Simulated assay, not measured.
Amino acid sequence: MAARGLIHGPLGHTGLHICVDMQRLFAPGSPWSVPWAQKVLPAIEELVASHPQRTLFTRFIPAARPGEAPGTWARYYERWAEITLANIDPDLVELMPTLARFVPPAKVLDKHVYSPWTEGRLDALLNGSGIDTLIITGGETDVCVLATVLGAIDRGFRTVLVTDAICSSADATHDALMELYRSRFSEQVEAVAMEMVLESWR
């Protein structure tokens, strides 16, 4: 299904770009490498460069050690013991270098689960800010981007998903989620290409 464009009009000064988890943890050479991340990185970099002060980067921070996480996350980190902070180069949690250079004025929000909303800091940052539109890029389409989008929808934000600036390590679920975003959430998610976002958000 083709994107329908910015059906709710141009993007204005009340927008915030949330770039989800574009970290070295997902770059080539990491056990969690997302090959598509390198393909979407130039488009994300262009958007950040156009609005660095209106960009928020999220970072996924793994558990400190295997088993040191609540509930089923403990089992998750037994499976992914090699990704815990005790076992990785600490630089892997940092943003990809071409994006890190924009901080500041861009901001960084750390999270320990898929959703940036769960721990409350994103709500605190946005409350009273006047921001009513979230422009979302990053990875992965079917995990942390999904959690970010659903939280934005639930809170009533205008949600713009940049179709050529999100990525996943699984083609089938990426494609399935794109169909979901465009069909089941067609009134609440505007799925558009980066070119349209750059033209509209000036």
Rank of each mutant, 00 (worst) to 15 (best):
L16W: 02
L92Q: 12
P62E: 10
S30I: 02
G120M: 03
M22Y: 06
F57Q: 06
I7V: 14
S33N: 14
P42I: 00
A37H: 03
S186W: 13
L11S: 01
A172E: 14
L122H: 03
I166W: 06
E68R: 12
E119T: 09
R202P: 12
G12W: 00
A37L: 14
Q23F: 03
C19W: 00
D91E: 13
R79F: 08
L180P: 07
H51G: 05
Y76W: 13
P35K: 09
Y114G: 09
G12L: 04
S168T: 01
M178I: 14
L25S: 08
T84Y: 08
L47V: 13
F102R: 01
M194T: 14
A172H: 12
R121P: 06
E94P: 04
V162A: 03
W80A: 13
F102T: 02
L47M: 15
V108Y: 02
P28E: 04
C167N: 09
D21V: 03
E68T: 12
P10K: 02
G130F: 01
R24S: 07
E190F: 11
E78S: 11
C167S: 15
D91T: 12
A37M: 15
G156Q: 09
V40T: 04
G15Y: 00
D142R: 01
F185N: 13
P116D: 00
A81L: 07
R4Q: 15
P31I: 09
M1W: 06
R24V: 01
H112A: 10
A86V: 05
D164C: 09
S50G: 08
T98A: 14
A27Q: 07
D164K: 10
P10N: 05
A106I: 02
A81H: 12
E45H: 02
E195W: 06
P104Y: 02
T141F: 01
A27K: 05
V113K: 09
L180Y: 14
G71E: 13
Q53G: 11
D154F: 09
V40D: 05
V162Q: 02
A2W: 07
N87Q: 12
I136F: 00
T148S: 11
Y77I: 10
W201T: 02
A3I: 07
L47I: 15
